[in-house]
Amino acid sequence: MGPHFLSRIFTPRSVAVIGASERPNALGTLVFSNLIDAGFNGELYPINPKHENVQGRKAYPDVEAIGRPVDMVVVATPARTVPGILRHCGEHGVKGAVVLSAGFSEGGRVGKRLEQEVMEIAKEYDLRLLGPNCLGIMRPSRGMNATFSNNRAQPGNLALVSQSGAICTGILDWAESQEIGFSAVVSMGDASDVDFGEVLDYLALDRETRSILVYVEGVRNARRFMSGLRAAARMKPVIVIKSGRHAEGSRAAMSHTGALVGADDVFDAALERAGAVRAMTIQQLFSAARILSSGYKIEGNRLAIVT
């Protein structure tokens, strides 16, 4: 069996950050700094046509100028520039992209048209895309922190997959105080291309991952979601929390990531059928994370509960 088709995003050997800079608090500055600080163990290239060097590294005007294969690009430029950037990357063999930029389906009619253009380009070049409008991805054991978060996850065996970047940072803040580590932290954002089902399919086979936490705002491809969830839950504990249980939450999810949120009782039944466990609150999700990361396994009738 060959490598999983998402290996280009989860285990890239080379990463180019498009929009890398030294401007304080800019997305490109933060994500490039995070990759350096985390000790990324592959080739790292800053892309910025306005600079010869960025954060002590030789800068390139575009991917073509690197002259070597690039597995993944992280795009941290305005939404309007993304289609042209991805087309150029596709023409030069890039197969994985993480798009941090906002302003797509969550931004109304113009954003939806822009997202459709991006998806057509990605499909044309077989370029798989995480995001847009996402925090990014972390693989702590591999020294990869391709996010603009101030958090730095410790290595562990717990995977976190979240549509909300704020939930990612909140859980990472809490996990740091609890000394809980992660095999992967994946911010899905608008999930225009790579979706929950495909990420769960990857994590089901990932040797570094023993259990999975999932925060869902909405599901775009129900069939693929159920397939990935079922595959993962058969092999590892999967804990899922969903926003939009009530009308107000559904409206918030739609404005946040453009997510379509289905009926809550249908979602409940789907999780039960797949074999996943549902958490109803963030506190329950934290509790599940603590239990799953502890390494304890209950066997037989040896569990006592005091309440």
Rank of each mutant, 00 (worst) to 15 (best):
R68I: 02
V99T: 05
A122N: 11
I85T: 13
N151P: 11
G107D: 15
G93Q: 09
H88P: 09
K123P: 03
R142S: 08
A97N: 06
L158N: 00
H88C: 07
T77D: 04
T77S: 13
I121T: 09
G90F: 00
L160S: 06
K123H: 14
Q178F: 02
P132R: 02
N157P: 03
V99Q: 08
E117G: 11
G136I: 06
G90C: 01
E91W: 10
G111R: 09
G96E: 09
Q163A: 04
A184D: 03
A97L: 06
F182N: 02
I171L: 15
K123F: 03
A153N: 02
G136S: 04
A97E: 04
K95T: 00
S183G: 00
L135Y: 05
A191R: 12
M119D: 14
I85G: 02
H88D: 15
V94E: 13
I180F: 05
G111A: 10
V94K: 10
V74F: 07
G93I: 00
V70W: 10
A76G: 02
M144W: 00
G90P: 10
R80Y: 14
L135I: 11
E91I: 03
F148W: 08
K95G: 01
C168P: 14
V99E: 09
N157W: 10
A153V: 00
A102Y: 06
G156H: 05
G165S: 08
L135F: 07
V99W: 04
G156M: 08
I180C: 04
R128P: 05
I171D: 09
E120K: 14
F148T: 01
I167K: 09
R87N: 08
R87S: 11
S164H: 12
T147F: 01
R113S: 14
L158P: 01
G107V: 01
V118H: 11
F104W: 12
D71I: 00
G90K: 08
A184S: 15
R68D: 01
L86K: 12
P78A: 13
D173F: 07
M188F: 03
P155F: 13
V75N: 04
S192P: 04
L160H: 08
G90V: 00
K95I: 00
G93S: 13
M138A: 11
A184R: 09
V185S: 05
L160E: 09
R113H: 14
T77W: 02
A166D: 14
A76P: 01
